[in-house]
Write a protein that binds this DNA or RNA. Structure first.
Length: 486
DNA sequence: TTTTGAGTTGTTCGA
DNA sequence: GTCGAACAACTCAAA
């Protein structure tokens, strides 16, 4: 095989179609294309119909991630072609226009994306264009972890054991050192895709918190495995400590792959045996991502359909007012409100707080989990097509391996346990900052003089509780009992 | 085929 | 203050 030295070569190019895999390293489709002697067209399409339309926070992330990848590609001689519209139509047209010899992409687990890929493959075949889909998004394909009936495994622990029994996933692939991309192919301007908010520009909190892109993702992983993972097992639930990796949005957009994380963590564990417990626990979280994706593979309507059908009978409350107070962090329960405001400001929420606020919406307010799922989808930078609905269903009790219905978080106890000095609450609810730690998670129990001393007016500067915990708990238990009996 | 036992993340109550 | 039991019943994996 000869290697063409001419950048103007007119030989047929290979199109690499990027989706939620905005990285150059460990990218099987790009790696395969770059190994040939062909020039490579790197293509990203904003297709609002192909998959679930992105939420606002995710759109902001996408814009910045794409910008970062444009720069990374240019640094090795390549170029990113940006388009908007129907993926199928655009790829077929581009393949014809450029006389492409092949189209490569990485597999996606979501049903709509798979359908598009199948249609695309059929269309390309008719045109005589080769196409290949590569595994790259998962540690193991769903087909490798099945139960006796050929379905997915619905309980996490056996799922995890089976995944571990498969052994290490493939080693990550290197990024191409150089790339040739044909010139003269039309690309949209990123700004014209209007992914970032302008009127108003509400993204300042996101900009202060995050740096999207592959380089940032791998720096964060390195930093986390270098120091952060120490005491991960013990401290990961603490809201007032910075004990988690914050890799989730990077993983969501494929700026880093699960295989890269897996192997880097294994390497770190071999290097520092004292950390192996913490690293095992960290890898388990990667296992949960995997579990949720496999669940989505078998249940394409995970975001709308109760996995346990008896939940279809559940009588949810309709209250736009209560929903809005929850969304805005005005429930009167400090740990809930702090979480909802962290989310609104940064596009992120600590995992423990996600459980607390989700339990509060579903059980204290009896509002349909789908409403909460949609709010998270719109506001989280890491809103994941699998994890988000799967975990909402888990909290609600309608999901796989779900929490039992009587497990109702007490927001006061959870706050006192995981934010003992109230540092997390004070950070996000400055109006409560003057309260002593003993009252920070239960301001309604403060005496008038304590309130005055803290310069706090309950009902004005901070709301009274939207529901009383014990009564709400009993109401939830009764609602579940009724569903069971109906 | 049948049986057995386990199942991410809790709270409350009463001894 | 600490501890164990109750909260219920069901689904699923695996022997």
């Amino acid at each position: 095989m000869t290697i063409s030295s001419s950048p103007q070569s007119s030989e047929p190019p290979i199109i690499v179609w990027f989706r939620d895999d905005l990285r150059l390293s460990d990218h099987p489709a790009l790696h395969a294309a770059a190994r040939t002697d062909a020039s490579v067209i790197c293509l990203y399409i904003l297709d609002e119909r192909e998959a679930r339309p992105l939420g606002g926070a995710a759109r902001w992330w996408l814009a910045n991630s794409v910008r970062s990848m444009q720069a990374a590609l240019e640094a090795i001689g390549g170029r990113l072609v940006l388009r908007r519209g129907s993926s199928l139509k655009i790829i077929v047209e581009l393949a014809q226009q450029t006389g492409a010899r092949a189209v490569y992409w990485n597999d996606a687990v979501e049903a709509r994306q798979q359908r598009t890929a199948q249609n695309l493959a059929a269309n390309l075949k008719m045109l005589g264009v080769d196409c290949r889909a590569f595994p790259g998004d998962l540690l193991a394909p769903p087909s490798a972890i099945r139960n006796d009936e050929g379905g997915g495994i619905k309980v996490f622990t056996p799922f995890w054991r089976r995944l571990m029994a498969l052994g290490d996933p493939n080693k990550p692939l290197p990024a191409p050192k150089s790339l040739r991309s044909p010139a003269g192919i039309f690309s949209e301007n990123l700004d014209e895709l209007a992914l970032e908010p302008t009127q108003p520009d509400w993204a300042s909190g996101l900009r202060e918190t995050w740096l999207p892109g592959e380089a940032s993702a791998s720096a964060r992983l390195r930093c986390f495995l270098g120091q952060g993972v120490e005491s991960y097992r013990d401290n990961r639930d603490r809201l007032d400590l910075d004990a988690t990796s914050h890799l989730s949005p990077h993983l969501r957009f494929g700026e880093i792959s699960p295989r890269q994380i897996w192997h880097a963590a294994r390497f770190a564990a071999a290097d520092r045996p004292g950390l192996s417990n913490d690293i095992e626990k960290f890898l388990t979280e990667l296992g949960w991502r995997e579990f949720c994706r496999h669940l989505l593979f078998d249940n394409p309507d995970l975001e709308t359909r109760n996995l346990r059908a008896n939940f279809d009978e559940f009588l949810w409350r309709e209250s736009r007012g209560d929903l809005r107070r929850w969304q805005r962090g005005r429930t009167g329960y400090p740990v809930v409100d702090a979480g909802m405001r962290e989310l609104w400001r940064t596009g992120f929420m600590h995992n423990r707080v996600r459980m607390i606020v989700a339990s509060f919406l579903v059980k204290h307010l009896l509002i349909d989990w789908r409403q909460g799922e949609r709010w998270f989808w719109d506001t989280l930078v890491d809103a994941d097509i699998g994890s988000n609905p799967a975990n909402w269903q888990w909290v609600a009790g309608s999901g796989a391996d779900a929490a039992p219905y009587f497990r109702i978080f007490n927001p006061v106890l959870q706050g006192e346990r995981f934010d003992p000095d109230g540092a997390y609450v004070r950070r996000w609810l400055p109006e409560l900052a003057g309260l002593p730690s003993s009252l920070i998670h239960r301001p309604w129990t403060a005496t008038p003089s304590q309130l005055e001393h803290a310069k706090l007016k309950l009902g004005t500067s901070y709301p009274e509780p939207i529901v009383e915990h014990t009564a709400a708990r009993e109401r939830a238990l009764a609602a579940y009992a009724k569903m069971r009996g109906s």
